[in-house]
């Protein structure tokens, strides 16, 4: 008994050491980022690194709102991100249900079509897509970015993978009970896929929030631009003002972190606890 508890203790200690090392590797760059955001440009790259600036320049955080319209950019990005995420969640889980649990003609072929496009780098069809979008009059509208991001093959692929792990018997039983497929999706599958949905939410949110090339190409009017373009504007126009760049980066990071923190508890309640056992 005694031996075993010592053994468990050692294992736990090793576990923590490993985790702390990992956390350090993950976090240090961000600590650097925050510390740089509080420095004068010329002090940013001094060595050895001064982790806590002796004279923190909080002005950097005030200045970024006036040098570029960062407020507008954040508002735009928030709007785009929320709409895209919702559309993505709804349409992907809907389609994924059919791919995972229904029999229909051309299912495998259509799914292959989805998977195949995941493999296609956007740079390849960026120009034809742009010309097409513009001919629809979508250039310089937020709709272009919404259409660009909301129907990604990735979402369907991810949701389908999760639905596949749900036993078919569950759907069969519901069908025998006389439930329509729509109700099965809404009342059985959707609640079961909470972890998958939160995963997809986070990924879509992050992708849309951090998307750079799409908005750069489609949104050329100042009042439509997004945060990442704002960051890039900072970097190209104030290329040596690292303090400001880092302050803007920190601000751009905050919303994503909030979304992650508020959603991550859903990962914990897993598929198992949510429905399979009950």
């Amino acid at each position: 008994m005694q031996v075993q508890s010592i053994q468990t203790k050692t294992i736990t200690t090793i576990l923590y050491i490993l985790l702390i090392l990992c956390a350090l590797a993950m976090l240090l760059p961000f600590v650097w980022m925050v510390s740089a955001s509080l420095k004068l440009d010329k002090d940013v790259f001094t060595f050895p690194i001064e982790w806590i600036p002796s004279n923190p320049r909080w002005e950097n955080y005030l200045e970024i709102w006036t040098t570029i319209p960062l407020g507008t950019f954040i508002k735009n990005t928030a709007k785009l991100t929320v709409i895209v995420t919702l559309l993505q969640l709804l349409t992907s889980s809907f389609a994924a249900y059919a791919f995972a649990k229904l029999e229909f003609k051309g299912r495998d072929l259509l799914f292959l079509g989805y998977v195949a496009t995941i493999a296609m780098p956007w740079q390849v069809y960026m120009v034809p897509q742009f010309i097409m979008m513009r001919s629809f009059g979508l250039n310089n509208t937020h709709l272009s970015i919404i259409f660009l991001q909301a129907f990604s093959a990735f979402g369907v692929f991810l949701m389908k993978q999760f639905y596949m792990s749900v036993p078919d018997e569950l759907c069969e039983a519901a069908r025998i009970d006389g439930m329509s497929e729509y109700r099965i999706w809404a009342q059985i599958m959707l609640p079961l896929s909470k972890p998958a949905l939160s995963t997809l939410t986070i990924f879509t949110f992050v992708n849309t929030w951090n998307d750079f090339l799409g908005p750069l190409l489609y949104l050329t009017r100042m009042e439509l631009k997004t945060v990442q373009i704002g960051l890039r504007m900072f970097i190209s126009q104030y290329s040596s003002e690292y303090g400001l760049i880092m302050a803007a980066s920190v601000v751009a990071l905050i919303p994503v972190v909030i979304v992650f923190l508020s959603l991550q508890k859903f990962f914990v309640q897993g598929v198992a606890t949510a429905g399979l056992k009950g």
Binding site: T72, K79, I83, L190, K194
Partner: peptide
Amino acid sequence: MKKVLTIVLVLSLVFTSVFAAGTKETA
């Protein structure tokens, strides 16, 4: 689960209505 969905939906509606003004062409 339903509660979560409702919250998300309401939130999104608020978001879209608040920011809808941004999309309007102001040319």
